[in-house]
Write a protein that binds this DNA or RNA. Structure first.
Lengths: 238, 238
DNA sequence: CAGTGGTCTAGACCACCGG
DNA sequence: CGGTGGTCTAGACCACTGT
């Protein structure tokens, strides 16, 4: 079990304090709106140092259960923060995690000026061009994801020399620019002609799409539209 | 600014240490794979206590920049963890945040046994029934989201008495069962007849859909399918 | 076995903000 | 103003794990 380390010794320390306080919240001993004792009180009750209580309460606050304000004290939230964490893996890892054989095909590679809205989005000015890539990611030889990517050659001139025949642009980018700021959005769209052909589905069929723009030091590097094969679901628990 | 409190005094303390270490990571002073000095070393260099360094490094680890192991030391990750945090607000708040007027209409309310796969999913056994609700959430009188929900009457018998004419089931549930475990998944589907009529779009049009199942103390309470109006995007940064 | 991170402690100072 | 949480310190013990 992955939890063996964490659950090895939960009978003492800040984990025990956290668990006990969470238990009281969930069992309605301390319902929404209830004010908790101060840290010093709790430290006495649990027979630990104040810092230990503080850590437990801080984590419970991060997880959305509590609301803390100086002088006002610690209060159980009316409703928990509804935040979900998604892992957004590389396609390759996503496919291999399903015990499927990963495959990759480059469908298109060209240097273009690109449509006007894309140029604005990437901050391309003057005559600077962009690298346009279309590729397919396969799971056991079946189309899994269609990738339509633009890379700013102003921000990433090295991309002009890169040959994306064997390595997907995603992996190349992760190696070249490991840390970056990202905006991602998910939506449902009707399959374009290119997407339909790539995924082998009917034009205008519903396609789950992720659009991602990546910046580094304030400069837009790349914009990509990922179209998933029918039936794909992005799932998480919280 | 929401950050005013945090950025007030970033020149000292664990925030300063964290910022400086992050700066070194991002500027390739410490590239991927680089091993950092030990906590005691860093504490001396920054002239702070070891606990302060530990907090900075722990947070950078949580954020996916570092990998820490006892004895092995602290290493800059090859690629950051690609995790995104989504806020999943109540529809009402989502709409009001856009300065639109929120509207709600209950389209259907019935007690049924429900389809077989749903009964399995909610763990309904024997003759226990479920409450089936369909409703519409409006932004400035335009259809925004179609909600198709099933509530287990075995787990939540109080729902049988609830009249959902004025209050959406979501808000009722949040007040009744404030804390729960949730699985959510997003996908793109073709609009069913009911969804198409509710949202006023063509049947089989692409619809962005969220499916959410909620448990409390291990018992499934409710399953809901939320269908968003065309053009909807779920966006986040990380 | 030894070195590193994980955690706890007891005490302290201070920022914030409700009354 | 005074009480509460936020943070720092110096020191300590321990758990884990690479060598």
């Amino acid at each position: 079990m992955a939890l063996s380390r964490a659950s090895r010794k939960d009978s003492t320390g800040f984990r025990a304090v956290k668990a006990e306080i969470l238990r009281r919240i969930l069992n309605d001993n301390w319902g929404p709106g209830h004010m908790l004792p101060g840290e010093i009180d709790l430290a006495r009750q649990f027979a630990v140092a104040r810092g230990t209580v503080n850590r437990a309460l801080t984590e419970l606050t991060d997880e959305g259960y509590l609301d803390r304000r100086r002088k006002a004290g610690t209060v159980v939230r009316q409703a928990p923060l509804r935040a979900a964490r998604f892992q957004i893996p590389l396609v390759r890892e996503e496919i291999e995690a399903k015990n499927a054989r990963y495959g990759y095909r480059l469908l298109r590679r060209s240097v273009e000026s690109g449509p006007e809205d894309l140029r604005r989005h990437l901050g391309l000015t003057g005559g600077t061009e962009a690298l346009h890539l279309q590729c397919l990611h396969l799971a056991d030889d079946a189309a899994y994801q269609f990738e339509d990517r633009w890379i700013s050659l102003a921000a990433l001139p090295a991309a002009r020399e890169a040959d994306f025949a064997d390595m997907g642009p995603n992996e190349w980018l992760v190696r070249t620019v490991p840390f970056s700021e990202v905006e991602i959005s998910f939506s449902a769209v009707a399959a374009s002609t290119a997407v339909a052909r790539g995924l082998g589905i009917a034009k205008d069929a519903p396609v789950f799409t992720a659009e991602r723009t990546t910046w580094w030091k304030g400069k837009a590097l790349t914009h990509v539209q990922l179209s998933y094969r029918p039936g794909y679901k992005l799932t998480t628990r919280y």
